[in-house]
Design a protein around this nucleic acid. Structure first.
Length: 915
RNA sequence: GGGCGGUUAGCUCAGCUGGUUAGAGCGCCUCGUUUACACCGAGGAAGUCGGGGGUUCGAAUCCCUCACCGCCCACCA
């Protein structure tokens, strides 16, 4: 047995313990210290590799805590566990961050050039990655560091090239010119998911387009069609005006032509269902190259598509008179000019949704680009089939609907990014326009179509969307495309744990790519956690300044406290508010546990010497009193309840259960009861030892149960307890209490005993209440008479010293019949608990008059009124024939019993209220 | 425009498939130098379970509806 310092200082225990785990090599499924049973199914967590861009936030802390709890739980149950650490290169996010750092130094992407920029990026991310991994250790994450991976390492690169080549070969990757989301700030395309619809008040302008006179070919100054638009600058790219086919107002105009101002282009008026007759003027300008609807309309009508914006969102060479102007400046000038020409019919504020870049917040411009796309239709179908036939389940289930909806309406995935930090698209183009896609890092030896030598081929300048390599994570990290042992053993994963906010970004892509390349789902279960918000329910963000730094929380309260605080408030898929109070409460809990263990360690009977106390012994059953059996039974009940909560993936429930069991049961009652026998000189050594071993037994179980949530403090405390011969040195690899070979499986439930002891504990509570109500000094001894039914006889006898001490009740007299109670003297309070009745003689403490004094009388009368009301409603129910007829017998019986108890309670209280 | 979640004590939340008098932590009030812990212990005050309707012997729990808050999805210029 070891020693515990008087004060619990998390910082002193956490660091050294993590080092011990590392030294013992217990994290890896095949580590030297692993005690995994190879015949059990491996438990594999797929974790979202965090972005290398910076420090971890509380959301990460929740992720790591949940996953670590899952892994530790499975590890203790004997499963080989694999939790593979990693980092995501986060191309657009990383470039965004680095660009800002460079800007502060007066440099830029352009000034450095691709090679030097990437060099700089590696420096940057190597530094941030080290910080990030250090934070994961501080949190206690039991990741298998021997398998550390990165989405930009060679293994990922190979998987990216190989997978993309196969997708291309299978017709699931294609290159085409299409309308994509362009972020002028990031200078790249982004996926639909990265466009954030932002409500804004813009303007809706009504503009006149003059009809072209069919005879002269000139615009008619007196004839026009008015269109409504929120983006007048796109006039420069208009190639038609559309009206609804059934709109009588414009029926005669369909087929006529109008003159587009500034660019002086004549375009047709067409009819299309897409037009909403009720909106604006009922006529819409069509700008195919810069609007999603218009693009679709143009394709139906075979209209020309004119791109009028450059990459930096200035007007390009097609925009006569406005060339080089920023889009918003061009808009301003165009509106002014239209007004000057009297072609601006109206202008009014308009509420609308503007697409903004998730990263840079720039207004996204839809525009035409030639890019690579993944054909998601067939892939999504497979992913849907997998969730529908439950090969992968989603927790909580309500997200299945969201999943279904998204997967059935999925669009093809634009994977080209005009960025530098990421995996280069493995496509090479020959001057004749032939496309070569190659899994070879060096590219094809020659054009596969025309045989031109490699030197004449040029590789696509673009890189992949970050989520492409992330989507390969579950198998690229296990050696794919090679057929490795790891891949065979650890694919598919058991649980994919992540926040619900990246279900589409990441989970969906892993499912689609995993099924396609591996022929089987990448994971059996998707566990989604919620967002961690500030105490006011606001999303934490750097700009709001309400971000809680996990490291700071760890430094002030300890990693265990942070972990417990996060889990204590969690339910699958539910957001939680995080506050200092929560953290403090968790820290207090760790402290409580520390002190309870310190007490148990220090309470070792002298008859067990230090040497003997290094080996765990089973408590001698014959010597266990009701107290000991109660402690054991409650611990057994907790094991059962915790197992159920784990099975339900309800980690918040696990936390609550253990908090209550350890604090309110084990500490408040168990330890206090045990102190009686431990400190009683009249008790035999053997009995005292049995009591102590009982405490060790219960505490040992609680530490095991709590370990997945609070690994550090439990590991430190477990070290001071005696262990069985087959226990390991470290709790992290010790058996789970309910596991078959569990060291603590001797715990047994005894519901009848729990009820008996429970009633006596209630008696203690009632005496305390009476004492407080009557204003009896805490130190004073109160005489108490108790009427004990035969069934409670033995238990009462055994617990008498405990009741005396805990309630400060002395003399504690057993009375044999009710007579003394019926003749309750003034200055005595009657107490009725289940089968027990008692009289607390407060008068004996010099407070007799208080029993009938106004304050106490009001109190008793209130209790009486409550009891009478309860009795009345219970009787009313029993008098109802339909209740007796339809309610289950057990309920009816219970209600009858209740009626009896209430009647007696009312009688007692009446006597007390009016002596 | 669809869809999801939430609404329980001053605050943060538990209350599973309907069944005694709805619970916990924090905060608040009273008391406490009992040899694990004041990051503690004992006791207490505090809730018409968002509103309305329904099903049922019985509803915080199931159904309908309304209100408010939050989120997701969606091509109305």
């Amino acid at each position: 047995m070891g020693e515990l310092s008087k004060a619990y200082v998390p910082a002193d225990v956490e660091g050294p313990i993590y080092e011990r785990w590392l030294a013992a090599d217990v994290f890896a499924p095949d580590g030297a210290g692993s005690r995994a049973d190879p015949s059990l199914e491996p438990f594999v967590i797929i974790q979202p590799p965090p972005n290398i861009t910076g420090a971890l936030h509380l959301g990460h802390a929740l992720t790591f805590t949940l996953e670590d709890a899952m892994v530790r739980h499975a590890r203790m149950r004997g499963h080989p566990t694999l939790w593979l650490p990693g980092a995501d290169h986060a191309s657009i996010a990383a470039q965004y961050v680095l660009d800002r750092i460079l800007a502060a130094e007066g440099e830029s992407r352009e000034s450095l050039g691709r090679d030097r920029y990437l060099e700089r990026m590696w420096q940057f991310i190597n530094a941030t990655r080290a910080i990030m991994l250090g934070q994961e250790r501080r949190l206690g994450a039991s990741l298998d560091w021997s398998r550390l991976r990165f989405t930009m390492d060679e293994g990922s690169a190979r998987a990216v090239r190989e997978s993309f080549t196969r997708l291309y070969r299978d017709g699931l990757a294609y290159r085409t010119e299409a309308l994509i989301n362009w972020c002028p700030g990031c200078r790249t395309s982004v996926s639909d998911l990265e466009v954030v619809p932002t409500p804004e008040t813009g303007m809706l302008w009504t503009i006149r387009y003059h009809l072209v006179d069919e005879a002269t070919g000139a615009p008619d100054p007196n004839a026009w069609i008015a269109v409504a638009t929120t983006r007048p600058e796109t006039i420069l790219g208009d190639t038609a005006v559309a009206v609804h086919p059934d709109d009588q107002r414009y029926a005669a105009l369909v087929g006529r032509r109008v003159r587009i101002p500034f660019v002086e282009r004549d375009v047709p008026i067409i009819a299309d269902d897409v037009v909403d007759r009720a909106f604006g003027t009922g006529a819409v300008k069509i700008t195919p190259a810069h609007d999603r609807d218009d693009y679709a309309t143009a394709r139906r009508h075979d209209l020309p598509m004119i791109t009028m914006l450059a990459d930096d969102a200035t007007v390009n060479e097609t925009g006569d008179g406005y060339i080089g102007l920023d889009r918003f400046e061009a808009r301003r000038q165009i509106v002014a000019e239209l007004e000057a020409r009297a072609d601006l019919e109206a202008a009014r504020p308009h509420e609308m949704l503007i697409g903004r870049c998730q990263r840079s917040n720039d207004v996204i411009e839809p525009r035409l680009k030639t890019q690579w796309f993944i054909r998601t239709g067939p892939l999504a179908e497979q992913a849907l089939a997998a969730t529908r036939d439950r090969r992968t389940i989603i927790v909580p289930p309500r997200f299945e609907k969201v999943w279904e909806n998204w997967m059935t309406n999925i669009h093809d995935w634009n994977v080209s990014r005009q960025l530098w930090w990421g995996h280069r698209i493995p496509a090479w183009y020959c001057p004749d326009g032939h496309v070569n896609v190659s899994a070879d890092a060096a590219g094809p030896a020659a054009c596969e179509t025309c045989g031109r030598p490699a030197a004449e081929l040029t590789q696509d300048a673009d890189i992949f969307d970050t989520w492409y390599s992330a989507g390969l994570w579950p198998f690229s990290t296990l050696g794919w495309p090679d057929d490795t042992d790891d891949l065979r053993r650890y694919y598919p994963g058991s649980v994919m744990e992540t926040g619900y906010d990246i279900i589409f970004f990441w989970v969906a892509r892993m499912m689609m790519l995993g099924i396609h390349f591996m022929g089987e789902v990448p994971f059996r279960k998707v566990y989604l956690h919620g967002l961690v918000k500030d105490p006011y329910g606001q999303r934490m963000s750097k700009t709001k300044g309400n971000v809680v730094d996990p490291l700071e929380a760890i430094n002030t309260a300890g990693a265990d406290a942070l972990r417990f605080a996060l889990l204590n408030g969690t339910a699958p898929g539910a957001d939680q508010k995080f506050s200092d109070e929560r953290l403090e409460d968790a820290r207090n809990f760790a402290n409580k546990l520390w002190n309870a263990t310190r007490f148990v360690a220090g309470a070792r009977p002298a008859s067990i010497d230090a040497e003997r106390a290094t080996r765990r012994e089973r408590s001698d059953h014959a010597r266990l009193g009701p107290t000991e059996r109660w402690i054991t039974s409650r611990a057994a009940a907790t094991v059962e309840a915790v197992d159920r909560a784990f099975a339900d993936d309800n980690y918040g429930e696990v936390a609550r259960l253990l908090y209550d069991a350890i604090w309110s049961e084990f500490c408040d009652w168990g330890l206090e009861l045990a102190k009686i026998r431990l400190g009683d000189a009249a008790v035999s050594d053997e009995d005292r030892e049995a009591t102590w071993w009982t405490l060790v037994e219960a505490l040992d179980s609680y530490l095991r149960l709590l370990h997945p949530l609070m690994p550090f403090v439990t590991e430190a405390l477990w070290a001071v307890l005696p262990h069985f011969a087959d226990d390991p040195d470290l709790l992290i690899v010790a058996h789970w209490p309910s596991a078959a070979a569990g060291a603590a499986s001797a715990l047994e439930r005894d519901p009848r005993l729990e009820r008996s002891v429970g009633q006596l504990l209630e008696l203690v509570r009632a005496v305390r209440t009476a004492r407080a109500a009557a204003g009896v000094p805490a130190a004073a001894w109160l005489p108490v008479d108790v009427l004990v039914p035969a069934a409670l006889d033995a238990t009462f006898e055994a617990l008498t010293p405990a009741i005396q001490r805990l309630a400060r009740a002395r003399p504690l007299n057993r009375v044999l019949d009710r007579t003394p109670l019926d003749a309750a003297p003034a200055g005595s309070l009657a107490v009725v608990i289940g089968e027990l009745e008692a009289l607390v003689h407060v008068a004996a403490a010099g407070r007799g008059e208080l029993a009938v004094r106004s304050g106490e009388r009001a109190r008793i009368e209130k209790d009486l009124a409550q009891a009478e009301a309860a009795l009345a409603s219970t009787r009313a129910r029993l008098a109802d024939p339909t209740f007796n007829e339809r309610a289950p017998a057990a309920i009816v019986e219970g209600t009858k019993q209740r009626e009896q108890e209430l009647a007696e309670r009312v009688e007692r209280l009446r006597q007390t209220a009016s002596p």
